[in-house]
Amino acid sequence: MSEITQLAQLSLAACAAGFLLDFFFGDPAWLYHPVRIIGNLTAFLERHLRRGTGEGKSAARMQILAGGILWILTVLLSFSVPALVLLAAYRIHPAVYFLTETFWCFQIVAARSLLSESMKVYEKLKENDLDGARKAVSMIVGRDTENLTAEGVTKAAVETVAENTSDGVTAPLLFLLIGGAPLGFLYKAVNTMDSMLGYRNEKYEYFGRIPAKMDDLFNYIPSRITAVFMIAAAFLTGQDAEGAGHIWKRDRRKHASPNSAQTESVCAGALGVRLAGDAVYFGKVHKKEFIGDDRRPVEPEDIRRAGRLMYVTSVLVLLFFGLVKLLICAAV
């Protein structure tokens, strides 16, 4: 067995083990998360690269350039540092490599934390604690939540589970399966920079343009792969797979992002509800198209259904592409 093949097999085993660890333990609050390092690095580079770029439209080119430099430096460091650590770990012993990468894969996948946070919303809704539900959902969505109705809170939770099935779970899994923890951290860096800088406002219109566009690019294929597997998951969980496929084909482009409506449309079709529509961000109403058909009112139980859909989708992605990687390893 060649060294490359052994590394690929160890990486695949670490990815599967990391996914299982996430399933059982989630993201412990006491454990320092490497994504915080990426966030701190992004904030540090932003402070220094913004100097001298000026303000307003006259400085647009300089801000776009500075944002691009920030993006390049962040992804290079996010990939190279874990790659060098893993290389050193492998030189010590393959078992050290496996344990190190397993731990990182465990931290990169966010299925359990997504489910746990959405279930906090569900529990508050079941207790008829609307204020508590608003506070809980504010932890996982970017929109203003203080005036949401119970239905609005429920929709927001379902939408974020559907969208983050790709961003937080299957996309990281795909990058982990392709390039191990280094590529997984590179993806998390792309995702983190978009969440910090990818706003369409005066401050980030130009500086955050490249981070936002690159996030769209990196998620373009994973979001579509996830949508297809989510339709299969709808069938396996006893939900409306035919409706999921129909709404996906019809509504998958009804979003300002080229990727967000891919999984959201599948989820809406599988549940038989209507999602999206206008939302308030920082006190301003943003007009959005509806996704799905209003066949029945959204209900708290839909949060649990969306969570099951997320988990089955992620298991299907892991099994399918893990098998593909095994076959490739066997062939080389």
Rank of each mutant, 00 (worst) to 15 (best):
R47Q: 09
L49V: 08
L49Q: 03
R50I: 00
R50N: 09
R51F: 11
R51V: 13
R51S: 06
R51M: 07
T53Q: 01
T53H: 02
G54S: 05
G54Y: 04
E55I: 12
E55F: 07
G56R: 04
A60P: 12
A60W: 10
R61D: 08
R61C: 05
M62Q: 13
L65G: 01
A66W: 01
G67E: 07
I69G: 05
I69R: 02
L70Y: 06
L70M: 09
W71F: 15
W71L: 04
I72Y: 00
I72V: 15
L73P: 04
T74K: 05
T74G: 07
V75H: 00
V75S: 00
S78F: 01
F79A: 14
F79K: 08
F79T: 00
S80E: 10
V81I: 15
P82Y: 08
L84V: 12
V85Q: 04
L87F: 15
L87M: 09
L87W: 15
L87R: 11
Y90E: 13
R91C: 07
R91S: 13
I92E: 11
I92N: 06
H93W: 13
P94T: 04
A95L: 15
Y97K: 09
Y97V: 11
Y97L: 13
F98L: 15
F98P: 00
L99S: 11
E101Y: 06
T102M: 10
C105I: 03
C105A: 15
Q107I: 05
I108S: 04
A110K: 04
A110F: 10
R112L: 08
R112S: 13
S113L: 08
L114S: 04
L115N: 10
L115T: 12
S116R: 13
E117D: 15
E117P: 03
S118R: 11
M119I: 09
M119T: 10
K120W: 05
V121W: 02
V121D: 03
V121E: 03
Y122M: 11
Y122V: 12
Y122S: 09
E123V: 12
K124N: 08
K126G: 00
K126L: 14
N128V: 02
D129I: 04
D129C: 02
D129K: 00
L130D: 01
L130Q: 01
D131V: 03
D131H: 00
G132C: 06
G132R: 03
A133L: 10
A133R: 09
R134A: 05
R134Y: 09
R134D: 05
K135G: 03
S138G: 13
M139S: 13
V141N: 07
G142C: 10
G142Q: 10
G142H: 10
G142W: 05
G142E: 10
R143Q: 08
T145A: 11
N147S: 15
N147A: 14
L148W: 12
E151A: 15
E151C: 02
G152E: 02
G152P: 05
V153L: 06
